[in-house]
Simulated scan of single mutants.
Amino acid sequence: MFIRNERSVKEFIQLYPAVAWLVIIQLVLWLLTGFLQTPLGNWIREWGMGVNFYISQGEYWRLITAIFFHAGLMHVLFNSFALVLFGPALEQMLGKMKFITAFLGAGLIGNLATFLLGPTLYSHVGASGAIYGLFGIYAFMIAFRKHLIDPSSTQIVTIILVIGLIMTFLRSGINIYAHVFGFIGGFALAPLLLNNVRPYSPRLGRQYVDDGSIQFDPDRWQKKQRNKKVFQRGLWIILGILVILGLFSRIL
């Protein structure tokens, strides 16, 4: 489910438009507000970032807009990487509208918890709560919809979720409320969102040429073994990248 094998960026955008556009939006906003730092970009950031005091004054849109802003390069890259890795399978299973509802709904719940439980002057940005909401949906599958997720993907989700939660409480500068309640929000929304969905299929939506002939592959077993090894290497690469990004995000 999580090893990306699309042939091009164009194909990825065609197959998973919601994930693609969410990533594009947050990268463009970072370019405007974090890299270029133009007056317009600074105004947009001040208008959209989450600030509990301003929310208490009636600026409730910040509960949503704060999801798309990020604190730095590593922050936006980490969240974009996580969204590209774990979003496509859910978008295919749920559909575009349900996926966007899940993403924004979990992010909203995380930011609402930040507002209700955090200090009055607390400010925050980032899609981490929404992404933890996606993990919440996967966790619900593991617990109650096992037919929707394969054992290998279950292991990946479990390992990365444990690592993510440990880092949430060990690293400084993390919005713990958004992470924890974003996850809870995704888990709570999952029963509604997962009605009548089918397991992820990497072939869905792709075009294949069939010449009508019956073919037999004598190397089928060897290919399965090679694919298993590639999968295992991919898992360790993913974990390594996550750890490295986490370490760098403490420095940069």
Rank of each mutant, 00 (worst) to 15 (best):
R4H: 10
R4T: 14
S8H: 03
V9M: 08
F12G: 02
Q14C: 07
L15K: 15
V19F: 04
I24G: 00
L31W: 06
G34C: 11
F35P: 01
L36F: 07
L40M: 07
E46A: 12
W47G: 00
N52C: 01
F53C: 00
Y54Q: 15
I55H: 09
R62Y: 10
I64P: 08
T65W: 15
F69N: 00
H70P: 01
M74R: 06
H75P: 10
L77S: 06
L77R: 05
F78N: 04
S80V: 06
F81A: 14
P88G: 04
E91Y: 03
Q92S: 12
M93G: 10
A102P: 09
A102R: 04
A113L: 04
T114D: 03
L116F: 14
L117P: 05
P119R: 09
P119E: 11
H124D: 11
V125D: 12
S128A: 13
I137W: 03
F144S: 15
R145A: 12
H147D: 13
P151K: 11
I159K: 02
I159M: 05
I174S: 03
N175C: 02
I176W: 05
Y177H: 13
Y177A: 13
A178F: 04
F183E: 01
G185M: 08
A188G: 02
N196M: 08
P199H: 11
D210F: 13
D211M: 06
S213H: 05
I214M: 04
Q215E: 12
D217T: 06
P218I: 13
D219I: 08
Q222M: 05
Q222W: 00
R226A: 13
K229R: 11
V230L: 05
Q232L: 13
Q232S: 06
Q232M: 09
R233N: 12
L235A: 10
I237C: 01
L239H: 01
L242I: 15
I244C: 14
L245M: 11
R250W: 02
